[in-house]
Design a protein around this nucleic acid. Sequence first.
DNA 1: GTGGTCTAGACCACA
DNA 2: GTGGTCTAGACCACG
Lengths: 123, 123, 123, 123
Amino acid sequence: MVKIVFDNNIPIYSQIVDRFVIDICSGTLPPGSRITPVRELAMQLGVNPNTLQRALGELESMGLLFTERTAGRFVTEDAALIDARRREMSRSVVSEFMEKMRALGWNDEETVKLITVRRGENE
Amino acid sequence: MVKIVFDNNIPIYSQIVDRFVIDICSGTLPPGSRITPVRELAMQLGVNPNTLQRALGELESMGLLFTERTAGRFVTEDAALIDARRREMSRSVVSEFMEKMRALGWNDEETVKLITVRRGENE
Amino acid sequence: MVKIVFDNNIPIYSQIVDRFVIDICSGTLPPGSRITPVRELAMQLGVNPNTLQRALGELESMGLLFTERTAGRFVTEDAALIDARRREMSRSVVSEFMEKMRALGWNDEETVKLITVRRGENE
Amino acid sequence: MVKIVFDNNIPIYSQIVDRFVIDICSGTLPPGSRITPVRELAMQLGVNPNTLQRALGELESMGLLFTERTAGRFVTEDAALIDARRREMSRSVVSEFMEKMRALGWNDEETVKLITVRRGENE
DNA sequence: GTGGTCTAGACCACA
DNA sequence: GTGGTCTAGACCACG
């Protein structure tokens, strides 16, 4: 968690949340790992500490982070919760994707074909 | 184009734009077809005429609509432009999808599997 | 005076006026020549007779056209007036041009250079 | 950017856009410079904030301005883009000019002569 | 304090 | 009756 390319049309705090969620779900931030202190991290990211605070608050209320009074903030140890969120997110990402493709006039077979054809091509 | 379920958090005008783009790309609004007059459509959608005007203005600057002074607004007759946009959108939707899935820790094979398994399940 | 490519962002009547002024000043419509009757010309141009009427009215009030009760409309025979307008228009076109180029940061020498370089190139 | 003499018949927002384009292209508003806040500038210009907002929005969609969430609006740092637009505008201004002069019955040599003679005369 | 969005309501030119 | 523009004034999210 060092650089984020911020998109100016999405609230910064929200982009930070997203990034944390992804890093936690994908294991980049493993369960129990310690989060860099707010002020320091805010500086690294080049954002206002209030903004970062807000993002971390949301992550806590999701249960993905927890605060140990004096020791700092940590990623939850609850691997099941992380995995649940990962699957839930995946499901919704897939749903939204299929819906969008359908709205664009591709039926499901065509969508699958597009996606498999695309594999192997460079981004 | 009668009802849109508006999602707060996203600008109304932007949701209207998206809807039109999709309706045009998918052929629901065929090339050359006439758009309901601004005021009338605004009433149908339950939004202020100015808001709708803004949306239509953006669609015009994308080239998807054009205005005939005093006669009304129409979908472009340029089928190639429509198709180009459809393909471009599809490509970006697929790209974003693959990227998100990769961020969530699925490799491309797994993603394809998830998507094909999903077919046939309930929405 | 058969085809005009109408620009949708400028009033049609005004585009018709401009075209007539130019055709008269450049001699394409020589002094004394007869104008096609309103209804017929309106059909040729594909515009509403009212619109054409308005345009012709303006041209009359400029003195470039005149109406002979029963015989129809004609281009003025006053060559001096036509020439005066031609010079006046030329002067203002040149003035506006120089002003625009200056606003774009070219001094007069550069402008002249740009214009001479351009000569001979295809449009 | 303090006073603009508004010409009725042309939309205010459009005149504001033109003025900004020129000020940016000519370097009066250098790359990266900050734009006066919408409300304040609207007051200075004596127009409604919405009207100004619209103008600025168009400039943004041209890529000449960009917005930094809550910090303000700035001129793009992309000097190449600015220069490209300047040259493009110059070319089209020159083209239109030559075309008009030709329509008025001057051939290119005469036009050049007119323009060079004109230099040194009073505006 | 910054930009962004929206509504309400009005007026205009054009055809 | 069509689109286009403008004002006035309000509310919101963000930092």
